[in-house]
Design a binder for these strands. Structure first.
Length: 464
RNA sequence: GGAGCCGUACCCAAGUGGCUAAGGGAGCGGACUGCAAAUCCGCGAUUCACCAGUUCGAUUCUGGUCGGCUCCUCCA
C-alpha cells in the first residue's frame, strides 16, 4: 500500500506523490523560543517525527526543515500588546537573543529525549531577515502591499483565493474580540503585517527599505521554506491552530510572491487536551493546588518519575488528527504498556522461523502506518503479535529504542547488587518478609527488576 | 456571529455500511508464590451520547437534540 496522507487543503486522504520522485521535502512550523515547550507542543513534533520516519521507512529521502522563531511578535497571550520575546527578556533580565538561545537549547534537549529525529535544517528567523525583506519586495513589486504608520501590510483583498486552506468566509469573520484593539490602519480586517515599523521600544530591530523595524510573524516561514525547499515543495505541517491564520497567510504571501503553488500537502496535528482544554505556554509557571504532580513540560514529567518515551508511546496510541486527553492515569497506562513491550524476548517470538507469517504481519503493520499514519492501529497490531523481531523492525518508525531497551541478555550485576540479593535471600530463608520487601524496594529503586520464581530469584535491570 | 472537530467499556484509545467493535492500562478469576511483589494464562462493550431518517442492514451515511473542544487574537 502506498503512503496516503490527509491533506487539509482537499480535506481528503491522498496518495503521497512527491514533486521529485523518492524525495519528500518537508517543512514543519517550529517553536517560538520564549519559554519551554509544553507537552502539547511536543505532541505535534512527535507527529511530525512519525511522518518523517514513515516516509523514510517507505524509501523516501526526507529533506526536513523546521524553523526556530527567535524573533518576538506583537501581542502576548494576554493580548496586552507586549512582545513575547521581549517580555521574557525583561522577566528574566536577559537580552532577547539570550532568551532565544536558552529556550532553543531546551527545546532540542526535549525533542532528543523523545527520540525525535532532528530536522536536517533548523533555520533561525533572525538569521533570515534578508530573505524576508527580499520576499516582501517581491510582493511589493507584484502590487500586494501597502504601507501605513504601523508597518508594511499584505492586502488580502488582492488575493483572489485568500483563505482557501481554512475555507474562510471573510465577510463572516469577526473583527476580533472586544478586548482586542483593532488596527485602524489596516484596509481589511484580514490584512496582516509583513514588516513592523515605528516600534521605538522594541529591542530586536533591523534596517529595511521601509525603515527600521522587524518582520511580521508569517513571513519567516515563507522565506525560509522557499530558501531551503524551493518555491513549491511537498509537505507543510503544523498544529491545527495554524490553519486559519498562519498557514493561510503563508500561502497568500508565498503564492503572490512566486506565482507558483506553495505546498502540495498540508498536514495538521490535533491538540493535546489537559483537564478538557488546551495547554498554554503562558500558563506554564502558574501554580496549582492539585496534590498530584503537575505535568506541563517534559522536564516536569521527568521530575515526576516518568520516562520521556512513555509520553512518546502515549502519543503514538492516539491518531494525530484526534485530540488526546492527557492525564496521569493515561501516562501510567502507557508506561505499563511500554514496559510490557520491552519485556519481549527473541526466544519467545511467536513469528520466529515462520517467514510467511512474518511477512503477513509486517504487511499489516505497514499498511496501517501508510494509511495516513495509522500508527495507533499499527501499535495495536504489534501488540497483538507480541513479536520481538516485528517490534525490532518497526522501531524505525515507532522510535522507542526497542532493541536497546529490550535487552536480550541481562547485564552483569554489580557486586553491590549481588550483595543485596544475597541479603534478601537470607531474609527470605528466615521468613523476614518486611526486611526482604525493603531490600526488594531498594533494588527497584536502583533500577532492577526482582522476581521470585520456581527457579529462585531473578534480578535484571529495568529498562523503564 | 462564522469555520471546523469530537462524544466508542472504569481510564487512554483504534476502527468499520453487514464476519467475534483493535490495542494498552485498571479491574476480576486462575497458575505460581511468602494468604506478597513481579510474571504468565483467562474474562471484559448484545453495544458505539440521544432522537429521527436513508438502507435488506448503521456505531459507521443524512438531519436534529444535548454535551465538550479548537480557531476567527500570539498559539502545537
Amino acid at each position: 500500500m502506498p503512503v496516503s496522507l490527509y491533506n487539509t487543503m482537499s480535506r481528503k486522504k491522498e496518495v503521497f506523490e512527491p514533486l521529485v520522485p523518492s524525495t519528500a521535502r518537508l517543512y514543519c512550523c517550529g517553536p517560538t523560543v520564549y519559554n519551554y515547550a509544553h507537552i502539547g507542543n511536543l505532541r505535534t513534533y512527535v507527529f511530525e517525527d512519525i511522518l518523517h520516519r514513515v516516509l523514510e521507512f517507505n524509501g523516501f529521502k526526507v529533506m526536513h526543515v523546521m524553523n526556530i522563531t527567535d524573533v518576538g511578535h506583537m501581542t502576548s497571550d494576554a493580548d496586552d500588546g507586549d512582545d513575547k520575546m521581549q517580555t521574557a527578556a525583561l522577566r528574566e533580565n536577559k537580552s532577547p537573543w539570550e532568551i532565544a538561545k536558552f529556550y532553543e537549547d531546551a527545546f532540542f534537549l526535549d525533542t532528543s529525549r523523545l527520540n525525535i529525529i532532528k530536522p536536517q535544517v533548523t533555520p533561525r528567523a533572525t538569521e533570515h531577515v534578508v530573505e524576508m525583506i527580499e520576499l516582501i519586495q517581491r510582493l511589493e513589486a507584484n502590487g500586494y502591499t501597502y504601507v501605513t504608520t504601523e508597518g508594511v501590510y499584505f492586502d488580502t483583498s488582492r488575493n483572489d483565493d485568500y483563505g482557501k486552506l481554512a475555507r474562510l468566509q471573510l465577510e463572516n469573520q469577526r473583527t476580533g474580540r472586544n478586548e482586542v484593539v483593532a488596527d485602524e490602519t489596516k484596509r481589511n480586517p484580514s490584512d496582516f503585517v509583513l514588516w513592523f515599523l515605528n516600534k521605538p521600544t522594541h529591542i530586536m530591530k533591523w534596517e529595511s527599505p521601509w525603515g527600521p523595524g522587524y518582520p511580521g510573524w508569517h513571513i519567516e516561514c515563507s522565506a525560509m521554506s522557499i530558501k531551503y525547499l524551493g518555491e513549491t515543495f511537498d509537505i507543510h505541517c503544523g498544529g491545527v491552530d495554524h490553519i486559519p491564520v498562519h498557514h493561510t497567510n503563508e500561502i497568500a504571501q508565498s503564492e503572490c510572491a512566486t506565482h507558483a503553488p506553495f505546498v502540495k500537502y498540508w498536514m495538521h496535528g490535533e491538540f493535546l487536551l489537559m483537564n478538557g482544554g488546551k495547554l498554554s505556554k503562558s500558563k506554564l509557571t502558574q501554580q496549582t493546588n492539585d496534590q498530584r504532580p503537575k505535568i506541563s513540560t517534559l522536564q516536569t514529567m521527568i521530575d515526576a518519575g516518568y520516562d520521556p518515551l512513555s509520553y512518546r508511546y502515549l502519543c503514538l496510541q492516539a491518531h494525530y488528527r484526534s485530540e488526546l486527553n492527557f492525564s496521569l492515569e493515561a501516562l501510567d497506562a502507557s508506561t505499563a504498556g511500554l514496559r510490557k513491550v520491552y519485556s519481549l524476548r527473541p526466544e519467545t517470538d511467536p513469528l520466529a522461523g515462520d517467514a510467511e507469517a512474518y511477512q503477513t504481519a509486517r504487511r499489516r503493520v505497514l499498511d496501517a502506518m501508510n494509511d495516513d499514519l495509522g500508527v495507533p492501529q499499527a501499535v495495536g497490531i504489534l501488540n497483538s503479535y507480541g513479536s520481538y523481531s516485528l517490534w525490532a523492525e518497526f522501531d524505525a518508525v515507532v522510535g522507542i529504542d526497542f532493541v536497546k531497551r529490550a535487552k536480550t541478555t541481562d547485564v552483569e550485576l554489580p557486586a553491590e547488587v549481588l550483595e543485596l540479593i544475597a541479603k534478601r535471600n537470607e531474609a527470605r530463608k528466615t521468613r523476614q518478609w518486611a526486611a526482604s520487601d525493603a531490600l526488594r524496594d531498594q533494588l527497584i529503586g536502583m533500577g532492577y527488576e526482582v522476581g521470585d520464581g520456581a527457579q529462585g530469584t531473578t534480578v535484571k535491570s529495568r529498562s523503564l
